[in-house]
Computed example of a mutant assay.
Amino acid sequence: MRVVPILVLSLFLGACATTPSGTPGPTSRPDRPASGAPGSDRYQHSADSGPEERRDVSAQPEPVPKEEPRSAYGNPDTYTVWGKTYQVMPTAEGYHEEGLASWYGRKFHGYRTSSGEAFDMYRFTAAHRTLPLPTYARVTNLDNGKSLVVRVNDRGPFHSDRIIDLSWAAAVRLGIEQNGTGRVRVEALTATGDPTPNKSDGRVPTAVRAAVDSPPPSTASRDQGGGDLYLQAGAFQGLDGARALEQRLRQQLKLPVSVRQPESSSLYKVWLGPFASNADRDRARRSLTEAGFAAPISVTP
Rank of each mutant, 00 (worst) to 15 (best):
V3H: 13
V4G: 08
V4K: 08
L9H: 03
L9R: 03
L11Q: 10
T19R: 14
P20Y: 13
G22Q: 01
P24V: 14
G25A: 09
P30M: 09
G36E: 14
G36N: 13
P38S: 00
P38E: 14
S40G: 07
D41T: 14
S46P: 00
A47F: 05
D48Q: 04
P51A: 03
E52Q: 12
E52L: 12
E53R: 15
K66E: 15
Y73P: 01
P76C: 06
D77Y: 01
T78A: 02
Y79V: 03
E93L: 10
Y95V: 12
L100Y: 15
G105V: 00
R106N: 10
H109E: 08
G110M: 02
D120E: 08
R123P: 00
T125V: 10
L131M: 12
P132N: 10
L133Y: 08
P134H: 07
P134N: 06
T135R: 11
R138M: 12
N141E: 05
N141K: 07
L142G: 06
R151D: 09
R151T: 10
N153P: 08
D154K: 09
D161S: 14
D161R: 04
R162P: 02
W168E: 13
A170N: 09
I176Y: 06
N179W: 06
G182F: 00
R203C: 05
V208N: 03
V208F: 01
R209M: 03
R209P: 15
A210Q: 03
R222E: 06
D223Q: 13
D223W: 01
D223V: 04
Q224G: 01
L231P: 09
L231Q: 09
L239P: 12
D240E: 14
L245N: 00
E246C: 05
R250V: 06
V257T: 10
S258Q: 15
S258T: 13
S258M: 10
Q261V: 04
P262G: 12
W271F: 13
F275I: 14
R281M: 15
R281W: 06
R281Y: 08
D282Y: 03
R285W: 02
T289M: 07
A291H: 04
A294S: 11
A294K: 03
A295Y: 04
P301G: 10
P301D: 14
